[in-house]
């Protein structure tokens, strides 16, 4: 019983932490942020496994996590509100040459992040862009101005 509860607790705790730690552009993740994710996962792991390093325990906990994940996915499919709570909503960062400063500050996105993403998609400068949208996975979508 205890290993199952520890696994479920660890999973839900990590979801919460990752969700509130701020969305960072997924593709733009720096190696440091990668290390950080591993680090956070590992810390939780230590407590989840505890002293029980048996194969049985590993199997039980992996299955518990997988099932919790399934339940979350199922709940996301059933309820749009729950989906928004777990994944958040896309956010408009820029439209028609105007930065949405509140959103950018709250999400800790800098103008540079958007410019980098624009460059990544081959736009030389911001004036070619109509919208910049922070997606739920942390990607920034760039929508170019339609050709006139």
């Amino acid at each position: 019983m205890a290993p199952v509860l520890r696994a479920i607790f660890g999973y839900c705790f990590l979801i919460l932490i990752v969700r509130i730690a701020g969305r960072r552009p997924g593709k733009q993740m720096t190696p440091f942020e990668l290390v950080l994710i591993f680090f956070i996962g590992g810390c939780t792991l230590t407590a989840m496994v505890g002293d029980d390093r048996s194969l049985t325990n590993a199997v039980i906990q992996i299955v518990s996590i997988a099932l919790t994940h399934l339940v979350i996915i199922w709940a996301k499919g059933r309820s749009a509100v729950f989906g928004r709570i777990v994944d958040g909503t896309p956010l408009v960062l820029m439209d028609h040459g105007k930065w949405h400063t509140e959103t950018m500050n709250r999400m800790r996105i800098q103008g540079n992040d958007v410019i980098a993403m624009a460059r990544d998609q081959g736009f030389a400068a911001l004036d070619r862009i109509e919208y910049a949208i922070l997606e739920r996975n942390g990607e920034i979508s760039i929508i170019p101005k339609s050709q006139e």
């Binding site: 928004r84 958040g88 909503t89 896309p90 956010l91 408009v92 439209d95 959103t103 709250r106 919208y131 949208i133 929508i143």
Partner: peptide, 11 residues
């Protein structure tokens, strides 16, 4: 114009 599930009140 553009379809995003954008909801500032929720956010």
């Amino acid at each position: 114009d553009i379809a995003v599930g954008f909801d500032l009140a929720f956010q």
